[in-house]
């Protein structure tokens, strides 16, 4: 049943650009990008329990790296995706090293400060980022073809998203995933069981940043412009909200949260006068009635329904 559902979802995703307008495909690209961002946040917060609030900064690093790799070095697109992930991971590793001594709210504040500092860098490093003028990103090329539309970008974005979901599942099922969860539950117990806590935390930071960097490169495929305003704390909070609404600690929650919350946000543009109120109400309702996330809530109710 579950496999059938997954196959149906995959089939839907494949035919989407053939049956919908460019606007819908653009939204799909954006939601898939946010899915990868959410997977990154899921690894560091949901799996490893490290409260990192710098996802937008790593996302920005990925976008600018990809843009630079394309403009300055003319690298092929797959290489620029990899470079975006690796540069972000390297910075994540550095931040992880500095943040190792902190936990909980202090860690959140330290990573928040890093995110704010990075936004300042994006705004001020005019020669690289275009500063407040923003940066125009040239079209990426793949198999000799220039990607100039959402429809052309979609298969690439979808393929990368599926690859990143697969990687997240592999990580969760691996020894590393178990180490993440052990650290999340109790660092002392994890240490007693022989888990290298320090290294595990560092890897979580680096992997999360890698995912955000790759998401940045994905964004650079279909978006032709980036402004530092889009890389502030608001973006991090949006990703965090998606992960929490979907269900903290679950991969399907991270994916579902990105898609459901992204769609809600888009639908609410139709009700500009009331959207902040509706947005707030949805969040409050989720926290009150589905504190474990949307998918756990649906699962629990389905089980209850089956028993009845």
């Amino acid at each position: 049943m579950r496999i059938l559902g997954l196959l149906a979802a995959l089939a839907g995703l494949i035919v989407l650009p053939l049956v919908s307008t460019g606007y819908v495909v653009y939204l799909a690209n954006l939601l898939l990008t946010f899915t990868v961002l959410c997977l990154g946040m899921h690894i560091v917060i949901g799996e490893a329990g490290q409260f990192s609030l710098a996802q937008a900064a790593f996302f920005g690093i990925g976008i600018y790296t990809s843009g630079l790799a394309n403009t300055a070095f003319g690298w092929p697109f797959p290489l620029s995706v990899l470079a975006s992930g690796l540069v972000a991971a390297l910075v994540g590793l550095c931040i992880g090293t500095l943040a190792l001594r902190m936990r909980d709210i202090y860690l959140a504040l330290a990573t928040f400060a890093f995110g704010e500092a990075m936004q300042w860098v994006f705004l001020s490093w005019t020669s690289v980022t275009g500063g407040p003028n923003g940066l125009r990103i040239p079209p990426a090329t793949l198999f000799g073809l220039e990607i100039v539309s959402d429809r052309q970008a979609y298969p690439v974005v979808l393929a990368i998203t599926l690859l990143m979901i697969w990687a997240t599942v592999l990580i969760a099922r691996s020894r590393l995933g178990r180490a993440f969860r052990a650290v999340r539950e109790s660092e002392v117990a994890a240490l007693a069981m022989g888990v290298p806590v320090r290294t595990t935390k560092l890897v979580a930071f680096a992997l999360s940043a890698f995912f955000a960097g790759v998401a940045g490169a994905m964004f650079a495929i279909y978006s032709t412009y980036i402004h530092p305003d889009s890389l502030g704390f608001q973006t991090t909070i949006l990703v965090l909200t998606m992960v929490v609404v979907g269900g903290l600690g679950s991969i399907s929650g991270a994916i579902g949260g990105a898609i459901v919350f992204g769609l809600i946000s888009e639908l609410l543009r139709q009700a500009p006068s009331y959207q902040e109120i509706i947005y707030g109400l949805i969040l409050i309702i989720f926290m009150m009635f589905a504190p474990r996330g949307l998918f756990a809530f649906i699962g629990d109710n389905l089980k209850r329904f089956a028993r009845a």
Binding site: Y23, Y26, H227, R269, Q275
Partner: peptide, 20 residues
């Protein structure tokens, strides 16, 4: 359409107006 003064939302609004 509401563009929320934000690049991603503005592009979505523009694409919606043009294509849908």
């Amino acid at each position: 359409e509401d563009d929320r003064c934000n690049a991603n939302d503005l592009v979505a609004a523009v694409k919606k107006l043009v294509e849908r």
